[in-house]
Simulated scan of single mutants.
Amino acid sequence: MKTQPIQRTSLSEEVYQRLQQQIITLTLAPGQKLNDQQLAETFGVSRTPVREALKKLEEEGLVVTKRGSRTNVTMLDATQARQTFPIVATLHALAARLAFPLSEADITRLIELNQAFQDAIMHEDAETALQLDDAFHGLFLKRSQNGQLADTLNRLTPLIRRLEYAQFSRHGHDSVTDHRTIIEACQNGRIEDLVRATEHNWNGLGRHLIASLEEDTPCDPS
């Protein structure tokens, strides 16, 4: 059996993951032009996997193709964030509900993750901090054992993660406190408190980030 199509798909996926990470971390800045030939040379691949990756990123709303096949990283969008954060908050709250109750080992792990998260914030290490935040909420997602929930969040999260990078220095400390409230709800066996605290964490973050974006972000150039 020929394996080349599988290899090509895997190559496209690798390019997609690298580009997505660069967009999320603002290595590729909002509005930046993307040239498929230059990207192909950078990654050492043909233009085909790059084009496939860009198409997937466009479907996710992270890049946009304009007239003349010009592709740009999408601008940070307050309207998009305003629509996305409540959905993400509700889904994470559902994951917490489905995961409840957590084991003592899981609660200990949450405490460790939040301490490391706080340390990363103190050192202004945005990439590590947000990876730890993913791990914190990811524990609930894993324990929920709901693949559809995980797939939906994996699709939506990149739309808001780069906004967190852009505004990281302003709001990281609030999430540490929210995480402690989530942990306390788990320790006390209070599922409704856990659900409310989880939803509050994401919605509160969304409100702060959207307000900051509206203050700081210039209009999308045509």
Score class of each variant (00 low, 15 high):
residue 208 H to W: 03
residue 40 A to D: 07
residue 212 S to T: 15
residue 71 T to W: 05
residue 10 S to R: 15
residue 132 L to W: 10
residue 114 N to S: 10
residue 146 N to D: 10
residue 133 D to P: 13
residue 28 L to K: 01
residue 88 V to L: 13
residue 98 L to M: 11
residue 76 L to Q: 02
residue 198 T to K: 02
residue 112 E to S: 12
residue 8 R to E: 15
residue 66 K to Q: 14
residue 98 L to W: 06
residue 98 L to I: 06
residue 145 Q to G: 02
residue 34 L to W: 06
residue 156 L to S: 02
residue 127 E to P: 01
residue 135 A to T: 03
residue 81 A to T: 08
residue 6 I to A: 13
residue 1 M to L: 10
residue 83 Q to Y: 13
residue 77 D to C: 07
residue 184 E to N: 09
residue 170 R to F: 13
residue 58 E to I: 11
residue 159 L to C: 03
residue 45 V to D: 01
residue 111 I to A: 07
residue 31 G to R: 05
residue 28 L to E: 01
residue 112 E to G: 03
residue 8 R to I: 05
residue 162 R to G: 04
residue 58 E to W: 00
residue 49 P to M: 06
residue 116 A to Y: 00
residue 173 H to S: 11
residue 180 R to S: 04
residue 78 A to I: 12
residue 16 Y to F: 14
residue 138 G to S: 06
residue 145 Q to L: 03
residue 192 E to H: 06
residue 102 L to W: 04
residue 14 E to P: 02
residue 150 A to W: 00
residue 76 L to S: 01
residue 89 A to D: 04
residue 108 T to A: 15
residue 19 L to V: 13
residue 222 S to E: 15
residue 205 L to G: 12
residue 143 R to H: 05
residue 210 I to R: 04
residue 92 H to D: 12
residue 85 F to H: 06
residue 139 L to V: 03
residue 68 G to C: 04
residue 211 A to Y: 09
residue 201 N to P: 05
residue 187 Q to A: 10
residue 98 L to C: 11
residue 133 D to L: 15
residue 79 T to S: 11
residue 132 L to I: 10
residue 198 T to H: 01
residue 130 L to E: 00
residue 56 K to F: 04
residue 28 L to N: 02
residue 46 S to E: 11
residue 80 Q to I: 12
residue 6 I to Y: 15
residue 40 A to P: 08
residue 10 S to D: 11
residue 143 R to N: 01
residue 55 K to Y: 09
residue 217 T to S: 05
residue 61 G to Y: 05
residue 98 L to N: 10
residue 22 Q to P: 00
residue 165 Y to A: 05
residue 160 I to L: 13
residue 56 K to D: 12
residue 6 I to G: 06
residue 85 F to Y: 15
residue 143 R to Y: 00
residue 70 R to T: 11
residue 107 I to Y: 00
residue 176 V to T: 13
residue 200 H to N: 09
residue 215 E to Q: 15
residue 199 E to Y: 02
residue 194 L to H: 04
residue 44 G to H: 05
residue 80 Q to T: 11
residue 74 T to Y: 00
residue 138 G to F: 11
residue 199 E to A: 02
residue 210 I to K: 02
residue 97 R to W: 13
residue 185 A to Q: 04
residue 13 E to L: 09
residue 98 L to S: 11
residue 74 T to S: 07
residue 18 R to P: 04
residue 112 E to C: 05
residue 69 S to Q: 14
residue 34 L to Y: 07
residue 196 R to Q: 10
residue 89 A to W: 05
residue 21 Q to C: 07
residue 145 Q to C: 08
residue 200 H to Y: 09
residue 90 T to F: 08
residue 147 G to F: 13
residue 220 D to E: 15
residue 36 D to C: 08
residue 98 L to Y: 10
residue 92 H to L: 12
residue 88 V to I: 15
residue 14 E to G: 14
residue 78 A to R: 09
residue 16 Y to N: 00
residue 35 N to L: 09
residue 206 G to E: 03
residue 220 D to L: 10
residue 169 S to G: 05
residue 47 R to C: 01
residue 165 Y to L: 06
residue 212 S to I: 08
residue 70 R to C: 08
residue 91 L to C: 01
residue 211 A to L: 12
residue 52 E to S: 15
residue 137 H to W: 09
residue 29 A to H: 12
residue 163 L to R: 10
residue 130 L to W: 01
residue 14 E to T: 14
